[in-house]
Design a binder for these strands. Structure first.
Length: 577
DNA sequence: GCCGTTTTCGGCCCGACTGTTTTCAGTCG
């Protein structure tokens, strides 16, 4: 059983929770939380680092002690301290900490005064009116707690980026119409373009005295108001999405943007630098000895601590601050850098448009080439192509290319990678194509070793070009399959083939850190729409966002190549292994 | 428990909102 970074982070969080409940030193608790954040966002697996003889205590926030605990967790899945803490704490009590409105102090009181250590017990106590009598609690707290427990299970979810976009547009239109509002910007993880967002952080610039709180909560989609003040208001929309509004003056706009864009880890790192320079950064500005010296623009905030501006997509404290300091920030890929698209479907399999409609739509999206990659026949549900139908499809593409202007169609296939790693069409059929996109669509539940071997074997095929949606995840439906991505990346490099960043809103697959890892290993990424409809090329910008989070530059993106160079790259992989 | 261009000891981000308080603790982001 491999221990993943997420497992280690979860253990550190649990230790932090339990220590907090036992009223340990708050900075000790914080050290565990910092370590959990470092580990969970670290681009490489701890197991891998250790195997390669790396020093864990070189990681930020990890010292000798925590490095030892990581080793312990990797070896046996737990550590002595967690075992001891669990043994001396009532079972399940950390669940209470994750209920909105409850923190360590209140959970401690609930347990020691009333013996409550599970959400169910808490709900009964609230309904029986036993909580209001506790010191520090009252009737209002008791009511809120009951509501929070009831909603506890359904919350704690994240939303695919594309799904919240509709809310964003409606909210922006509504807010811009408010009196006194000069600017509305969505900050938070939405601005950092994370693949999922937990809530929306909306920054509103308004003149002093603009009384907005009532206006904000009057938005028609608002189902519940969590808190409401002159500068900060939190609501829950009807579908459960939480939205936090912050109102600032124009002079603080830059500082507020930095602050509310985050990430938290990035901001903490900025503040530490500021501290060393005897500066204080908050959401209103940068201060020296109480005097404001910057904050109207984001650039002024970064400049105050000697840094150039850092693109929002990089603000995760994964090395961007050091890169900025050293003048080594990447020149991130942009949507306009994409010259083509290497994954699209037509009515020949499960697409909804013909060849020509797709070609015209791709050209309208600013692309100069488009690979037609319909499914292969084992994917029966998608009406996949067998060898005979593929031959006819190839001829149709050739004929169409002769009359198309401003766009070239490439002949491809999204061929199924069978459970044993063979490809779903004979070599002779694949040899006639410009590129072969391989994908796993079945047996996503194979054990890690087997799944990895399956993909490595497929990559060994002489005609294999690009591995599509490598992790196979679908938001809200299924998680990523078990894979040794390090090996797959190394193998792709050795075999000279490529990996896909699939842009479908429910996929966004590969992950950002995998893009970075692949790129560092010298493997080019195809940012591919997987379009099934003429409108789907708009998804490319989602993929570009994810690629930017993965530190990709245009030079690392396969479909940023002009067609002649692309053909050369593909030819050098096709059939030469 | 971590960390060091003040420091190997003594710090550790900082402000808003709520509810129960009569000046502030707890929680959140």
């Amino acid at each position: 059983m491999t221990r993943r970074n997420a497992d280690i982070a979860a253990i550190f969080e649990e230790i932090a929770d339990l220590l907090e409940l036992q009223q340990a030193n708050t900075f000790r608790v914080r050290a565990y939380r910092n370590a959990a954040r470092t580990v969970s966002t670290w681009p490489r697996e701890m197991a891998e680092l250790v195997a390669q003889g790396g020093d864990l205590d070189d990681l930020p926030g990890i010292g000798k002690d925590l490095a030892g605990k990581i080793g312990e967790i990797l070896a046996r899945g737990s550590c002595d301290q967690l075992d001891r803490l669990r043994a001396t704490s009532p079972p399940g009590i950390t669940d209470l900490l994750h209920i909105s409105g409850l923190g360590p102090k209140r959970v401690h009181a609930l347990y020691h005064e009333l013996g409550i250590h599970t959400p169910t017990q808490l709900l009964s106590a609230a309904r029986e009116g036993r909580i209001r009598a506790l010191p520090g609690f009252g009737v209002a707290s008791e009511r809120r707690i009951a509501e929070a427990v009831a909603g506890h299970l359904e919350r704690a979810r994240r939303w695919p980026l594309a799904r919240v976009s509709a809310h964003v547009e409606a909210l922006q239109a509504y807010l811009r119409a408010a009196p006194g509002v000069s600017r509305v910007v969505v900050a938070g993880s939405f601005r950092r373009r994370r693949d999922t967002v937990g809530d929306l952080d909306i920054l509103i610039v308004a003149g002093a005295g603009a009384a907005l709180a009532g206006y904000l909560t009057a938005f028609e989609e608002v189902a519940d108001v969590l808190s409401q003040g002159p500068t900060r208001t939190s609501v829950v929309l009807k579908d459960g999405l939480q939205v936090d509004f912050r109102v600032v003056g124009a002079a603080s706009f830059g500082a507020a943007m930095v602050y509310f864009t985050g990430s938290k880890a990035h901001n903490l790192a900025l503040r530490r630098i500021a501290q060393a320079r005897k500066l204080k950064i908050n959401e209103y500005g940068v201060y020296r000895d109480g005097k404001r010296i910057a904050g109207d623009t984001e650039a002024s905030v970064y400049a105050s601590i000697g840094l150039p501006g850092i693109p929002p997509e990089l603000r995760e404290n994964r090395g961007e601050i050091e890169a900025a300091r050293d003048g080594k920030l990447p020149k991130l890929v942009e949507r306009k850098d994409l010259r083509g698209d290497l994954h699209a479907h037509t009515t020949a399999s499960d697409g909804r448009e013909g060849l020509e409609q797709m070609a015209v739509a791709a050209r309208a999206a600013g692309l100069s080439y488009l690979a037609i990659t319909d499914h292969s026949h084992s994917l029966g549900i998608a009406h996949g192509l067998d060898e005979r139908r593929l031959a006819a499809h190839i001829e149709a593409i050739d004929r169409l290319n002769e009359k198309l202007d401003g766009i070239v169609l490439l002949k491809g296939i999204e061929v199924d990678i069978l459970a044993d790693g063979r490809l779903d069409l004979p070599d002779a059929a694949l040899a006639r194509l410009d590129l072969v996109v391989g994908a796993v669509h079945s047996r996503l539940d194979l054990p890690r070793e087997q799944q990895t071997a399956r993909i490595l074997r497929a990559m060994d095929h002489p005609h294999f070009s690009i591995l599509a949606h490598p992790n196979g995840r679908l938001f809200g439906t299924r998680g990523p399959c078990e894979l040794d991505m390090d090996r797959i990346i190394r193998h792709a490099h050795e075999r000279g083939c490529f990996l896909e960043l699939n842009c479908q809103p429910d996929r966004l697959d590969m992950f950002d850190f995998q893009c970075r890892q692949a790129s560092n290993a010298g493997v080019m990424i195809a940012i591919s729409s997987d379009a099934h409809h003429r409108n789907d090329f708009r998804w490319l910008s989602l993929g570009v966002d994810q690629a930017r989070r993965g530190w990709l530059e245009a030079g690392g993106v396969l479909n940023a190549l002009p067609l002649p160079q692309l053909r050369k790259r593909l030819a050098s992989t096709m059939g030469t292994r």
